[in-house]
Design a protein around this nucleic acid. Structure first.
Lengths: 124, 124
DNA sequence: TACTAGCTATTACGTTTTTAATAGTTAATA
DNA sequence: TATTAACTATTAAAAACGTAATAGCTAGTA
């Protein structure tokens, strides 16, 4: 079975993926919701117990590093969305993804390039 | 806050979205995992309590209809994946989505068309 | 009408998740 | 050295999830 992070676990992993690493304090500061410091601490220990993060001692604090990478957690989540919501249709998913007003033409172009590359590979 | 279905709730909603509607029996038959009939029943009642489905009496059975539509639940889930895993980068997400070996050239072409349309809109 | 198959309603319970208070520890510092 | 600020460790416990047994109801049918 694919890796399955809980809601809150994902919030915390996301911070570590973004920062590369973080102390409890750093993670706590980044989390949007108003959690207690000790809650974040517990969460990180839980994640460590599950093998998703590891820590090194840094002064008197622990510095946590992601072990599970976003890709590994991501593919499961994305596949699930693709399967359950968009019934396996990547087109539907992409349609929805690009329907957003905020997508810039530049981003669209880069994505098209990406597609062209991929198509080139297949046709050669 | 966006709609947030639990894992199992999503499984069940996915069936209803696909079939359009379903009795407990029908949903139960479609769910892959080996659940007790009463579990599915409970789940549907829970979903009804949360307003995600409604039912009509059909003979002696209930026929359930989705109230929450896949798009509504989907955007939340997709946005979350986009945000937390791919750090908001649609490119990264699309890259991953199309990296899959199983994607056919036809599908890629259709997606490219989709992109071209969208770009056309923006440029005009 | 009595029976029964097929449903729904009720109730419960183990597990996981989430949150957090508070106790203990340690490294710097007055 | 005594103090304290900044951490980690321990312990609880409420809430959410997931699962299912069993009781109760009802429409058809023998």
């Amino acid at each position: 079975m694919s890796i399955r992070l809980t809601h809150r676990e994902l919030d915390i992993m996301a911070v570590l993926w973004r920062l590369g690493s973080g102390t409890v304090n750093e993670v706590w500061a980044e989390i949007e919701d108003d959690l207690a410091y000790s809650t974040v601490l517990t969460m990180l220990r839980t994640l460590e117990g599950k093998g998703h993060v590891r820590h090194e001692v840094q002064g008197k604090a622990f510095r946590y590093y992601p072990v599970t990478q976003s890709e590994d957690a991501g593919s499961g989540a994305l596949d699930r969305v693709l399967d359950k919501i968009y019934q396996g249709s990547r087109e539907l998913l992409v349609t929805r993804l690009l329907a957003d007003e905020e997508v810039s033409p530049e981003e669209l172009r880069r994505i098209r390039e990406l597609l062209d590359e991929r198509l080139g590979e297949l046709e050669s």
